[in-house]
Design a protein around this nucleic acid. Structure first.
Lengths: 120, 120
DNA sequence: GTAAGTTACTTGCTTAATGCAAGTTACTCT
DNA sequence: AGAGTAACTTGCATTAAGCAAGTAACTTAC
């Protein structure tokens, strides 16, 4: 019952790459962050992305992204409460990582191309 | 029986991030590439990394990395044949992605730090 | 020259994550 | 009133990850 922070320091090692992959290392999380960086905010917008994420996985990832401090929820209506998701600074700071991935991906997967940002 | 390339175009979408994550989107693959960029070449060197990858997963990932063109094997002895692994250009081109992840990780996981490159 | 060690794996089994389809709640719009 | 929409949840099958142990073919130490 001490007041130690619940995070158990480093999951696998103190390497910043390992720390990052503990939270981002799967097939979906970075795609959701991509969508958020492109301006998407709502559940249906994420579902509409061409990669066809399953609804249970999307719900699970949004929960984890919030728990890990990448996004915050903001209610945009009551009864029932509905939330929009927006990136925190931690999440937005991933933009250079995604940008590097795009640069790499475009040169190694000819024909691939990025999507347009959604209108606000 | 046409001579179409065996790769089925794009796994999930034509987004370069999605293409990248189809091959790199897990907890281990980028850590092995990190090790290779740091100069590691052999099975035991990868196993010695502090994240403690399981032997079956390491063997599986090395196979996939070769199949996907990130690394090539080079025999360094016969009887039995033993291989070293080295990055292809495709693999080395991931350095900026890893660098961006390191920059992000160091600022968001205080106390994390990169390992030294191994001596050749 | 035998026994212990090293290297690069493979195999078997358990647990966790992913994927698919359908169901639910609380509205709004026609 | 009935259909539609948004944001999920639940159940179940498939796939991947994790753990421990085993194997083949040497090499080195005694």
């Amino acid at each position: 019952m001490t007041d130690e922070p619940d995070k158990s320091k480093f999951d696998r090692s103190c390497c910043p790459i390992a720390c990052a992959l503990d939270q981002l290392g799967d097939k979906w999380t970075l795609l959701i962050i991509r969508d958020l960086l492109l301006g998407k905010k709502r559940y249906q917008e994420f579902l509409a992305s061409p990669e066809q994420i399953a609804t249970n996985i999307l719900a699970d990832r949004l929960k984890k992204l919030e728990a890990d401090g990448f996004v915050v929820q903001q209610a945009y209506q009551q009864n029932p409460v509905r939330y929009e998701y927006k990136l925190t600074q931690k999440g937005e700071d991933l933009a250079p990582v995604l940008q590097a991935l795009v640069t790499w991906g475009k040169s190694h997967y000819p024909g691939s191309r990025v999507f347009k940002a959604v209108k606000p």
